[in-house]
């Protein structure tokens, strides 16, 4: 399992905050000027939502060591909760709905985290499937959640903050970017705090953690709560900013696996890893379809694309697990160190 506890420390000479600040300046100052609407709609918005979900799952699985296959359920809970708060609570600002949606997802996370007090590893993963199936079932079964809409597919509310409409592609991008940046910063603070150390301690040696007086049960449930909060908010971004519809279908087991793959490929127990992994997961199918269309022309239809996507992705995951268990982050750090070394020795 990954052992990277000091994220963002990848510039040995510069202070830790320099690279994230530069990236943020670029994302706010340059990307909106040069980005096409395709870039926002097809790449950056899903990238941001999935990155945030990856950050959330990484807290639970990467840091606290509790495997979960219920991520999509928590995304769905967040999206539907935000929709209903927004619909039913008069005068609640959008940000308020989103925060409360995170709280709802956290509460559901605690309930489905209870088995972790007795179960570990594979058995825990299977038990989190219960969350996945239960939430999807409840959202489909009770039409109240979708405001009795006939199709079950509902339009997300229009995005606006303090009266400023954010409906355009750029607006939705900035909206998502801001939430992701804030929550990622808080997650980074969390994993380097005493609570973050407790997460890792429980992951690495639960008996020793208990003996030195870490409240193991409480800390596990806290990991479920915080992780589900973040994943729930990621679900809101997915539905409100990216798809602009709220529906249970997109939050299926496939999505849960996708988020798990994101943190495995990106790097477990690494905040940066979630972004690396999400970038790969989002860009890879697009690149594959371009490449396939270029090489095979019309033969490369959507069926072939879907199949080849799954095959290549599966192969990638196996390769990563064997060759680079610490994920893209470790790969990146190694390459960067080599380059730096080569540059210094010239």
């Amino acid at each position: 399992m990954a052992a990277i506890t000091s994220d963002f420390s990848f510039m040995p000479v510069l202070p830790k905050w320099v690279v994230p600040v530069l990236l943020l300046a670029f994302a706010y100052g340059v990307v909106p000027l040069i980005g096409s609407s395709y870039l926002f709609e097809a790449i950056l918005l899903p990238f941001l939502a999935l990155s945030l979900a990856g950050v959330g799952l990484n807290i639970l699985t990467g840091y606290a060591g509790q495997v979960s296959l219920g991520s999509a359920a928590f995304m769905a809970a967040g999206a539907f909760a935000a929709y209903n708060f927004n619909l039913r609570v008069e005068g609640l600002p959008l940000i308020g709905s989103i925060f409360l949606a995170g709280i709802v997802a956290a509460a559901i996370g605690i309930v489905f985290g209870l088995p972790s007090l007795r179960l570990k590893g594979f058995y825990l993963a299977v038990s989190t499937l219960a969350a996945q199936f239960f939430v999807q079932w409840a959202l489909t079964k009770f039409s109240w959640f979708s405001n009795d809409s006939a199709s079950g597919v509902i339009d997300a509310p229009r995005l606006s903050i303090a009266g400023v409409a954010l409906d355009s592609a750029i607006g939705r991008y900035l909206f998502a970017l801001t939430i992701v940046a804030i929550l990622t910063f808080l997650a980074y603070r969390l994993v380097s705090s005493q609570t973050g150390r407790n997460f890792i301690a429980i992951r690495d040696n639960e008996t020793a953690a208990r003996i030195i007086g870490i409240p193991v049960l409480k800390t596990k449930l806290l990991a479920f709560a915080i992780s589900s909060f973040i994943i729930g908010v990621a679900g809101v971004i997915w539905a409100f900013a990216y798809l602009r519809t709220v529906e249970p279908d997109g939050f299926d087991l496939d999505r849960s696996f996708q988020i798990l793959f994101i943190i495995i490929i990106g790097g477990l127990a690494s905040i940066r890893g979630a972004f690396f992994g999400a970038a790969l997961i989002v860009v890879f199918p697009l690149a594959l379809s371009r490449l396939g269309g270029f090489l095979l022309g019309d033969l490369f239809d959507s069926g072939v694309l879907d199949m080849s996507q799954r095959i290549v992705l599966g192969a990638l995951i196996i390769l990563f697990l064997i060759l680079e268990p610490d994920g893209l982050v470790a790969l990146w750090d190694r390459i960067r160190r080599r380059l730096l070394f080569a540059w210094q020795s010239t």
Binding site: T5, Q194, D204, A209
Partner: peptide
């Protein structure tokens, strides 16, 4: 029974977790 993913300092600091 150390916490492999933590630095030496953080391992030792975790010995005070019960007081937090």
């Amino acid at each position: 029974a150390l916490f492999k993913g933590l630095s030496v300092l953080d391992n030792v600091a975790s010995g005070l977790a019960y007081k937090v």
